[in-house]
């Protein structure tokens, strides 16, 4: 994507972020008035208050926050900006809520190229537009060169919980079915392929994307959903372990049913990693009673974000709080939580 064709960088006199851009003075205002406000423009933000004043309605709200410190900040398939929007949108969607408003806090390191910031802002604008959320308030700080790592972004989000929806892992029951929305490991492998010291050529792009449309389609198809989770850090294995432990129900996965792109599998084979533990940024795990699984799967497969959705396992009463997997050769083993970081093996 080349934003600069349509959107020339609005601040040309400063090629990089300086401490003065965080001073609260003229340059801070220039950053806000020329860059952030025009890009994210909406009624609440344009009002220019210290905070956004939002209309309240009846029903329940969901509220979440997430900070983004990804390195490198630009990677195949996205950058820290769209990731920061999608991450919070997805957390809201997984509460069964329709994401509505986001706040954006940016911590910029002195020396960050203005052009990079502009690319990030434009991709946030685009991601917010796709997800249908408004960025209604924000904050910017600048830290000395060496005190940050180019840019950190925090986003918080508010969403309205759909009426009648109750996402609650404690309602998981043995026999329920686990559905995964598509290929796993794309984001983590895309990031690794761009990281210093591990650079390798791959066509894999991050799957960073908003899930709220897919969640809407699922909730339209069934009112019996007990779990919606996006398996980000720690991957599918870690997320399923969390659900299994909090619900007290065991799980059995079918290795052959788990969608993994062959490029991702190849990279994992070479690096000695397991795709089950690799981060995703646009995938969804759904747990649903078996009687509604067919309908939900079909709804997911009919949505552009769930074309490759598959049933990957089910819940069991046999081994409470433990996740097991039937391997591709028919044997069984435990799938444990990730300890520390996954580190590439020696040989």
């Amino acid at each position: 994507m080349d934003f600069q064709l349509n959107c020339p960088i609005p601040i040309s006199e400063y090629p990089v972020i300086t401490m003065a851009h965080g001073s609260g003075g003229v340059l801070s205002h220039q950053l806000i008035d020329k860059m952030f406000r025009p890009a994210f423009s909406n009624e609440q933000l344009d009002a220019g208050h210290d905070g956004a004043v939002l209309a309240s309605g009846s029903g329940e709200m969901a509220f979440t926050t997430d900070s983004f410190v990804v390195k490198p900040i630009f990677f195949p398939g996205g950058n820290i900006g769209d990731l920061a929007v999608n991450g919070t949108v997805n957390d809201l969607a997984c509460c069964g809520a329709t994401p509505e408003y986001l706040s954006v806090g940016m911590i910029l390191e002195e020396g960050l190229p203005m052009e990079d910031l502009w690319k990030i802002v434009l991709s946030m604008k685009e991601a917010a537009g796709k997800a249908g959320v408004s960025i209604v308030t924000g904050d910017t700080k600048v830290v000395d060169h060496g005190s940050g790592d180019q840019i950190f972004i925090n986003t918080s989000g508010l969403g309205r919980v759909r009426e009648g929806v109750r996402i609650d892992p404690s309602s998981c029951r043995p026999g329920d079915v686990i559905i995964l929305s598509g290929y796993i490991g794309d984001h983590g492998v895309a990031i690794m392929s761009a990281r210093e010291g591990l650079e390798f050529e791959t066509g894999i792009e991050s799957d960073s994307a908003p899930l709220n449309g897919l969640v809407d389609a699922i909730l339209d198809a069934s009112t019996g959903i007990s779990v919606l989770r996006d398996p980000t850090r720690g991957g599918v294995a870690t997320t399923l372990n969390e659900i299994s432990r909090s619900s007290g129900v065991g799980m059995v996965l079918d290795e052959k049913a788990i969608p993994v792109r062959k490029e991702v599998q190849g990279a994992c084979e070479i690096l000695g990693l397991d795709p089950l533990y690799i981060a995703n940024e646009g995938k969804l795990l759904v747990i649903v009673p078996e009687s509604e699984a067919g309908r939900v799967l079909e709804a997911m497969q009919n949505h552009s974000m769930g074309t490759h959705a598959a049933i990957i396992g089910k819940l069991t009463g046999d081994h409470p709080s433990v996740v097991r997997m039937t391997t591709s050769i028919g044997s069984g083993r435990i799938i444990d939580m990730l300890t520390g970081e996954q580190l590439p093996r020696i040989c």
Binding site: T327, I329, S331, G332, R333
Partner: peptide, 14 residues
């Protein structure tokens, strides 16, 4: 690497 595979696929089952 062989130990890892034996565990990962629980080859003792076979």
């Amino acid at each position: 690497g062989q130990t890892h595979c034996i565990m990962r696929y629980n080859l003792e089952e076979f």
